[in-house]
Computed example of a mutant assay.
Amino acid sequence: MSFALKSLSDLLRQERMLYGVVVAVHGEMVHVATPRGGVHARAMDHLQAGDRVKIEGGLATKAPVGERVYSV
């Protein structure tokens, strides 16, 4: 029984940072498309569809994006 509880707590306690793109905004909650699938998170910044975000601890903030353009 303790093995099942430990596995469940490990799934619920994902401390990883995820990066993704905002798909929809519903008040303070945003739907984000990530490489691992769709995620719901609370928005800390003013976000709109198409923004790149970083999700950490269930909170979505704007992700740093490249601002320089290099000629190739």
Rank of each mutant, 00 (worst) to 15 (best):
M29H: 12
M29V: 14
G37L: 08
G66L: 08
H26C: 04
E28Q: 11
V32E: 15
R13K: 15
S71H: 04
P35W: 07
G66R: 12
L18N: 02
A60L: 04
V72L: 13
S7H: 15
G27W: 03
G20R: 02
R36L: 11
E56G: 03
M29R: 15
P64E: 14
V32A: 11
A41G: 00
A33T: 10
G20P: 06
D51E: 05
R52S: 09
P35F: 06
K6G: 07
H46P: 00
Y19C: 03
G57I: 04
M1Y: 05
D51N: 13
A49I: 15
E56M: 07
Q14G: 11
D45L: 02
G27A: 07
V69Q: 05
V32F: 08
T61A: 01
G38L: 11
A43L: 01
H40G: 02
D10N: 12
L5S: 14
P64F: 08
H26F: 09
R52H: 13
R16F: 05
L12H: 09
K62S: 06
I55V: 13
L8Y: 12
S71D: 13
T34G: 04
A49K: 09
Y70P: 00
Y19A: 02
L8D: 05
A43C: 02
V23E: 10
V39R: 02
M29E: 10
Q48P: 00
Y19E: 14
H26M: 07
V53I: 01
M29A: 13
Y19D: 10
V22H: 06
L11S: 12
P35N: 10
V25M: 03
V39P: 01
S2Q: 07
Q48G: 06
M44V: 10
K6T: 14
P64Q: 09
G66A: 07
K62A: 11
L8V: 14
G58C: 09
A33R: 05
H31D: 14
G50S: 05
G38T: 10
S9E: 07
H40V: 09
V25G: 00
L59W: 07
V23Q: 04
L47F: 02
H40A: 05
D51S: 03
L18D: 14
A33N: 10
K6A: 13
S2F: 13
V65M: 06
G20W: 02
K62F: 10
R16V: 08
Q14M: 09
I55C: 00
I55E: 00
T34S: 12
R13G: 04
A33W: 03
G27N: 11
G50V: 11
A4E: 08
K62R: 13
L18F: 15
H31C: 09
D51F: 00
T34W: 12
R36A: 12
G37W: 07
A41H: 00
G58H: 09
V30I: 12
R36V: 08
K6F: 15
G20N: 05
M1N: 04
H31M: 11
A41N: 00
V32T: 06
E28D: 15
A4S: 15
G20L: 03
V21Y: 04
E15S: 13
D10P: 01
V32S: 12
R13C: 06
G66T: 04
G57A: 09
K62E: 08
G37S: 08
P35A: 09
L47H: 02
L5Q: 14
M1I: 06
V53S: 09
V25T: 10
G57L: 08
R68N: 05
Y70C: 05
F3Y: 11
L12A: 11
G57Y: 01
